[in-house]
Design a protein around this nucleic acid. Structure first.
Ligand SMILES: [Mn+2]
Ligand SMILES: [Mn+2]
Ligand SMILES: [Zn+2]
Ligand SMILES: [Zn+2]
Lengths: 146, 146
DNA sequence: CAGATATTGGGTATCATTCTCACTGCATGG
DNA sequence: CCATGCAGTGAGAATGATACCCAATATCTG
């Protein structure tokens, strides 16, 4: 987990590389994502930071995504979920409730993750692909929806 | 790979269990998915079966999904992709081109898949989840988009 | 065939997300 | 300080994939 000041500096740097300013609205988004205990939807983000305008939040989430600060998760639910990029946190995967849409983070053992990376590279190569990243999503029912 | 007549019977059975008829439109969808060399979008499906009405195709894809005949893949692109359910084909994963949206099927070694299943169950249990299935998606660039 | 139920398809509605544009904030330099 | 220019903002409108409606048909059952 990156310390806040370090995170702030890293975000600032990435935005600068893309000629983007680190404004109050963008800081509120980053803080909101950092404070959340998992990926959040846009309505959830607005609830936690009521001063954000919806249109600006969507726009800034898109810009932060392009700048490599934010990752957008697209699952079957109504809303996309957003989280801080893995390069600012750590590589992990997701547990998704098919009933309420809740998303939780999970981490695989380093050893298993390395085995997977190797297997994935081989598979992709056989199809002529070059892969940039992978996702592993576990679908099911959360403890409250069971 | 299930033979066509066997597939037809299996689809028929599942629809019957849900009080759904195996009509010409639904058969066209199943045939279209079977003939495709990977998951297809609704516009692609309509192109390959021009007599399908868009509204009926969407409705029937949803019903076929509920009946366990079709699986819907939601990635970042414009359209969802559809394929025959794994229970009618075999468990596999996806290689997705981030540039053109192409989706290809890939299969992991049985041994690795079993290792994953075990690890996933443990992780889910620790979070109070019960999992129904998992996805593994490899993102990158296909040979033509490289 | 009749009655009951399921399906169809053209049109319309929904709604998450993106776009528009007039306005504001902020940096820079003279 | 003020002027200038450009990036950012936000309220509302537009977009587009997908779902819904409903009157007309088709299919099953007996
Ligand atoms: Mn996450
Ligand atoms: Mn597939
Ligand atoms: Zn749940
Ligand atoms: Zn491609």
């Amino acid at each position: 987990m990156v310390a806040t000041s370090e995170l702030e500096r890293a975000v600032n740097d990435r935005l600068a590389e893309h000629d983007l300013r680190y404004t109050a609205g963008r800081r509120a988004i980053v803080e909101g994502l950092k404070a959340a205990d998992g990926p959040v939807t846009l309505p959830e983000l607005l609830d936690s930071s009521p001063d954000l305008a919806q249109s600006s939040a969507y726009r800034n989430l898109g810009l932060l995504e392009e700048a490599g600060v934010v990752r957008r998760l697209v699952h079957g639910g109504e809303h996309a979920h957003f989280e801080l990029s893995e390069s600012l946190t750590e590589h992990h995967h997701h547990l998704i409730c098919e009933s309420c849409g809740l998303v939780r983070d999970v981490t695989l053992e380093t050893k298993l993750e390395r085995t997977l990376d190797k297997a994935f590279d081989t598979l992709a190569e056989a199809e002529g692909f070059v892969t940039t990243h992978h996702t592993v999503d576990l679908y099911g029912l959360c403890s409250t929806c069971r």
